[in-house]
Computed example of a mutant assay.
Amino acid sequence: MEEGNRKDGSKMIEMKKGLVSLTASLEEGLQDAKASVTGLVKKATAKNEQEASEADLQTAKMQVEAADAAENKKKQLQKI
C-alpha cells in the first residue's frame, strides 16, 4: 500500500508543478498583453518622436520582465 501512496503523491506533485507552470505562463501572457496595450496608448498619445521611442522601450522592458518572472517561477519548480 505504501508504494501506491508514493505514486499518488508523486502524481499530485507533478500535477501541482504543471498547474503552477501553467499559471506562470498565463500570467506572463497577461502581463505581455498589458505591456503591449500600455505601449500602444503611450505611443499614440506621444507628443514627439522621443516620447514614442520611450514608449517602445518601456513596452519591451515590461515584456522582458514578464518573461523573466515566469521563467524564474518555472526554474523554482524544477528545484522541488
Results as ranks from 00 to 15, higher is better:
residue 68 D to Q: 11
residue 54 E to I: 08
residue 20 V to H: 05
residue 31 Q to C: 07
residue 17 K to S: 12
residue 36 S to M: 07
residue 48 N to G: 10
residue 2 E to N: 02
residue 76 Q to R: 09
residue 18 G to K: 00
residue 28 E to W: 04
residue 21 S to R: 06
residue 48 N to Y: 03
residue 9 G to V: 11
residue 16 K to N: 11
residue 74 K to M: 13
residue 31 Q to K: 11
residue 75 K to P: 00
residue 52 A to E: 13
residue 65 E to I: 01
residue 62 M to R: 09
residue 43 K to G: 12
residue 65 E to L: 04
residue 3 E to F: 08
residue 44 A to M: 02
residue 34 K to H: 05
residue 53 S to F: 06
residue 30 L to I: 09
residue 37 V to D: 05
residue 30 L to W: 05
residue 23 T to R: 02
residue 2 E to Y: 07
residue 29 G to A: 13
residue 40 L to C: 05
residue 35 A to Q: 07
residue 62 M to S: 04
residue 5 N to G: 03
residue 52 A to M: 09
residue 43 K to M: 06
residue 49 E to Q: 15
residue 31 Q to F: 06
residue 5 N to Q: 15
residue 11 K to A: 11
residue 35 A to P: 03
residue 21 S to P: 00
residue 28 E to D: 11
residue 68 D to L: 04
residue 62 M to E: 09
residue 77 L to K: 09
residue 6 R to M: 15
residue 33 A to W: 06
residue 64 V to K: 12
residue 7 K to T: 10
residue 76 Q to V: 14
residue 41 V to N: 03
residue 60 A to T: 07
residue 58 Q to V: 04
residue 10 S to D: 15
residue 6 R to W: 15
residue 63 Q to T: 04
residue 30 L to T: 05
residue 23 T to K: 04
residue 52 A to R: 14
residue 44 A to I: 00
residue 56 D to N: 10
residue 7 K to L: 15
residue 38 T to I: 00
residue 9 G to E: 15
residue 36 S to D: 10
residue 12 M to V: 04
residue 57 L to N: 12
residue 65 E to W: 01
residue 76 Q to G: 11
residue 53 S to T: 05
residue 27 E to C: 08
residue 22 L to S: 12
residue 46 A to P: 02
residue 17 K to F: 03
residue 22 L to T: 13
residue 23 T to Y: 06
residue 8 D to L: 13
residue 27 E to N: 13
residue 71 E to D: 14
residue 33 A to H: 06
residue 68 D to M: 07
residue 20 V to I: 14
residue 22 L to D: 14
residue 65 E to Q: 08
residue 57 L to V: 07
residue 8 D to P: 00
residue 18 G to Q: 07
residue 13 I to W: 10
residue 6 R to N: 09
residue 12 M to H: 08
residue 60 A to I: 07
residue 11 K to N: 11
residue 5 N to S: 08
residue 17 K to L: 10
residue 39 G to W: 01
residue 61 K to Y: 01
residue 1 M to I: 06
residue 55 A to G: 08
residue 26 L to Q: 14
residue 17 K to N: 13
residue 11 K to Y: 08
residue 69 A to Q: 11
residue 62 M to G: 00
residue 15 M to D: 15
residue 59 T to H: 05
residue 71 E to Q: 12
residue 46 A to T: 03
residue 22 L to E: 14
residue 37 V to H: 01
residue 66 A to R: 05
residue 8 D to W: 08
residue 15 M to C: 04
residue 4 G to V: 12
residue 30 L to Y: 07
residue 59 T to D: 03
residue 31 Q to Y: 02
residue 39 G to R: 01
residue 29 G to D: 11
residue 36 S to N: 11
residue 29 G to I: 03
residue 14 E to M: 08
residue 54 E to K: 15
residue 65 E to D: 09
residue 33 A to G: 09
residue 51 E to L: 02
residue 62 M to Y: 01
residue 75 K to H: 05
